[in-house]
Amino acid sequence: MNTLHRRAPGQNSQATHDRVYTLTDPQVRQAAVPVIAEAAEAVVAEARATVFAAELREEADPADQPTDTADCHDYDNSPCPGPGGGCGASFLMCLACPNARIHPAQHSRLAHLHHSLDNLRTAVHPGQWHSQWEDGHARLEHLKSQLGTAVWTRALADVNDTDRELIALLLNGDLDP
């Protein structure tokens, strides 16, 4: 004997039908798992992509204040104010700030930071990397995709000792406010 599963409300409202019949149906629940997982992964990917808020520039603006990862267009009005004024954010947060400006002179340092975070991923516990470094890495991935492979490869070739020293200090937490 075949049983017909009715998927539309009969004598009930849509809300009652969904709550009492549809949501308790094991087949519906099983079919929903991959759909919900895919949607959650898409939301996370979109959130990470949108946390890159820095503005790309062709050259530095002398009015901007240089930092170790970007130039700051409005240090005194940071979205992450420090206790004594100015910006209280970590340098890894600069790329998420709408005040950040990135120009070609910074590409090598940022490419080296990205490379260093890739290396760090294999050296620390996955939970630690995820909580401390993954968001910064995602912003650098976004920057890398915006600049393109040729620019990024050239930037890695241009890394100098100052870039290496500053990134080492940054990764050790020695430059954070």
Rank of each mutant, 00 (worst) to 15 (best):
N2H: 13
L4Y: 14
H5L: 03
R6T: 12
A8C: 06
P9V: 01
P9W: 05
G10A: 14
G10H: 13
H17V: 09
D18M: 14
D18R: 14
D18Y: 08
Y21H: 15
T22E: 08
L23C: 15
P26V: 11
Q27Y: 14
Q30V: 09
A32V: 12
V33C: 05
I36H: 02
E38I: 00
A39D: 03
A40L: 14
A42Y: 08
V43H: 07
V44I: 08
A47G: 07
A49G: 03
V51Q: 11
F52N: 05
F52H: 10
A53T: 12
E55K: 13
E55M: 04
L56W: 11
E58D: 15
E58S: 11
E58Y: 02
E59M: 12
E59V: 04
A60I: 05
D61M: 05
P62C: 00
P62W: 01
D64K: 04
P66G: 06
D71I: 03
D71T: 04
H73G: 07
D74W: 02
Y75E: 04
Y75P: 02
D76V: 08
S78R: 01
S78K: 01
G82W: 04
C87E: 09
G88F: 07
G88L: 10
S90M: 13
L92H: 09
C94P: 02
C94Y: 06
C97E: 09
C97W: 02
P98A: 08
N99Y: 01
N99P: 01
A100C: 12
A100H: 13
I102A: 04
P104E: 11
A105D: 13
H107W: 03
H107C: 01
S108A: 15
L110M: 07
A111E: 14
L113K: 14
L113G: 05
H114F: 09
S116C: 13
N119V: 01
N119D: 04
L120R: 15
R121M: 06
R121P: 01
A123K: 00
H125E: 14
G127A: 10
G127N: 11
Q128G: 04
Q128K: 12
H130T: 11
H130F: 06
S131Q: 04
W133E: 07
A138W: 05
L140E: 12
E141L: 10
K144L: 04
Q146G: 05
Q146N: 01
G148V: 12
A150G: 04
W152T: 02
T153D: 10
R154C: 00
A155P: 03
A157L: 09
V159Y: 09
V159Q: 13
D161M: 00
T162M: 00
T162I: 11
D163H: 11
R164Y: 00
E165V: 08
E165C: 04
L166V: 11
A168E: 12
A168T: 09
L170A: 08
L170N: 07
L171M: 12
N172G: 14
D174I: 00
L175M: 09
